[in-house]
Amino acid sequence: MMDDHQLLRYSRQILLPQFDVEGQEKLLNSRALIIGLGGLGSPAAMYLAAAGVGNLVLNDYDVVDLSNLQRQIAHSTENVGEAKTASARKTLERLNPDVRVTEITDRLDGSQLEEAVAQADVVLDCSDNFVTRFAVNTACVKNRTPLISGAVIRFEGQLAVFTPGIENSPCYNCLYANHGELAESCAQSGILAPLPGIIGSLQALEAIKVLTGVGETLRGRLLLFDALRMEWHQMILKRNPKCPTCGEPA
């Protein structure tokens, strides 16, 4: 049960009739796994902490670089050379000391990835490469853990929500075939500073909706954002019955 301090901190959310005290308590009892503490993971983690998600698990094996600071807002100049998980943890604890933060500084794969996903109520994929994205998707499908997937490059962003096992929901592999190709990186192609903030914030929003059951999520849809034209587009996603990850067994 929330104390007076928490009731005041989260009062503006609790005022929402669709959310109320019940929604806040669901957040406080939830566990979110955030993979990648860069441009997407920074705002996503910060908003989840501010909103009161009780347990945040941060996974990143990189350190803060000066070139990160243009868009990775969980880190500051004084954190250059520090592990991103440690830098982000300090930021989140300043935002909300009630949130319990766990750091994982190793590359998650195999049984470690499956265990981390199985323990989470929702996973936010904020990574920047296809290898990680497909591995995370496979673990989420196996454990039926909701996955909030975001991606950004140059002036373009995309967002999708995958809920394995619910209403014939597609998975990330239904959207993209796993051919092992490398994703474009911001270091190669560039990126405008606010763009990952927009998509990362939406990842946090969708995660909160998944955790509380409030509203309608992006399940079965792909949201595309063109920052140059300030245009949003939406595609309907259907489950591929022959998908090697979530399709029907042969």
Score class of each variant (00 low, 15 high):
residue 62 D to K: 07
residue 64 V to Q: 04
residue 64 V to L: 06
residue 65 D to W: 11
residue 66 L to V: 15
residue 66 L to F: 15
residue 66 L to S: 15
residue 67 S to H: 12
residue 68 N to S: 06
residue 69 L to Y: 07
residue 69 L to A: 08
residue 72 Q to M: 09
residue 73 I to N: 08
residue 73 I to E: 08
residue 74 A to L: 12
residue 75 H to T: 05
residue 75 H to V: 06
residue 76 S to M: 15
residue 76 S to P: 13
residue 78 E to W: 13
residue 78 E to S: 15
residue 79 N to C: 14
residue 80 V to I: 09
residue 80 V to W: 02
residue 81 G to I: 13
residue 81 G to S: 14
residue 81 G to R: 13
residue 82 E to V: 11
residue 83 A to F: 13
residue 83 A to T: 13
residue 83 A to W: 13
residue 85 T to W: 05
residue 86 A to I: 09
residue 86 A to G: 09
residue 87 S to R: 05
residue 88 A to N: 07
residue 89 R to E: 10
residue 90 K to Y: 12
residue 91 T to R: 11
residue 91 T to F: 06
residue 93 E to F: 02
residue 93 E to V: 05
residue 93 E to W: 02
residue 93 E to K: 05
residue 94 R to H: 08
residue 95 L to H: 00
residue 95 L to I: 06
residue 96 N to L: 01
residue 96 N to F: 01
residue 97 P to A: 03
residue 97 P to V: 03
residue 97 P to T: 03
residue 98 D to M: 02
residue 99 V to C: 00
residue 100 R to S: 03
residue 101 V to A: 00
residue 102 T to K: 03
residue 102 T to Y: 01
residue 102 T to V: 06
residue 103 E to T: 08
residue 104 I to W: 01
residue 105 T to W: 00
residue 106 D to Q: 07
residue 106 D to N: 06
residue 106 D to R: 05
